[in-house]
């Protein structure tokens, strides 16, 4: 029950500040424009890097939004409000991750085909691109709660957050971008997708505990 209340509030807060929702997308568009400018606009060149670039852009544009998951709540004191409500902390973390996914991950998935078109991704790979992002963006949000909880009372924690969660995201990137690449090469992506799903299960079970532990230490 409290899960839904917190989720609802977070979505509402994000909705009120719509720049939070569209900024990552604008960011993606800006960066993707730079690729043809820097690499040359040859469709073949772009096609080759498309799986990786679409994926890395999705990852980086999520990364820049992670810092504030807990930082805002810590600064305005509403973190105390829900941690002292008797709500289980890992459940609160999952609610925060779910709200973050709805307001960042979901738009990124919906926007991914646009980026893919700009990079001439082969038509056969769109389905797997969407599927891999659908599994992976919740992982970004879940692991993001851990990073965000670790740095929540630092002033400039953004860079540190990237360092902390890059090693966590590396396997996700390997499996996710790999799935899309395999499809463009005409191979089956089943192995990649299965491992990606494994990453999701693992982060769903461990990330809330780790983030809750980090919040507790930070409040001590």
């Amino acid at each position: 029950m409290r899960f839904w209340i917190l989720l609802q509030r977070d979505v509402l807060v994000a909705w009120r500040k719509k720049s939070n929702i569209y900024q990552p997308l604008v960011f993606q568009l800006l960066i993707v424009t730079m690729f043809p400018l820097g690499l040359g606009a040859g469709a073949q060149t772009l096609q080759k890097i498309a799986p990786a670039v679409v994926w890395i852009l999705a990852l980086i544009s999520t990364l820049i939004t992670l810092e504030n998951i807990f930082k805002d709540d810590y600064e305005d004191g509403s973190l105390a409000l829900y941690t002292l409500s008797g709500m289980s902390l890992p459940v609160a973390v999952i609610a925060k991750a779910a709200a973050h996914w709805l307001t960042t991950g979901l738009p990124v998935i919906i926007f991914a085909p646009v980026i893919a078109v700009l990079l001439h991704l082969p038509a056969s790979a769109y389905g797997i691109l969407m599927l891999s992002l659908l599994i992976a963006t919740p992982i970004f949000s879940l692991l993001g709660t851990v990073g965000s909880a670790l740095i929540m009372n630092l002033k400039n924690g953004g860079m540190l957050l990237s360092v902390l969660i890059m090693p966590l995201l590396a396997p996700v990137l390997i499996f996710g971008a790999g799935a899309v690449l395999e499809t463009t090469l005409g191979n089956t992506p089943v192995g990649h997708i299965t491992l990606l799903a494994g990453c999701f299960v693992l982060s769903l079970t461990l990330a809330p505990l780790a983030a809750a532990a980090a919040i507790k230490v930070n409040l001590e």
């Binding site: 409290r2 509030r9 509402l12 807060v13 810590y74 305005d76 509403s78 002292l84 409500s85 008797g86």
Partner: peptide
Amino acid sequence: SHYIGHSLGNKASLTCLENLHFAATING
């Protein structure tokens, strides 16, 4: 018990009513 600290716990982008509603419902 209920605690109000230096940071008051209001979300800047929510209305007064929404803030109070959240505080009430999250406390059951």
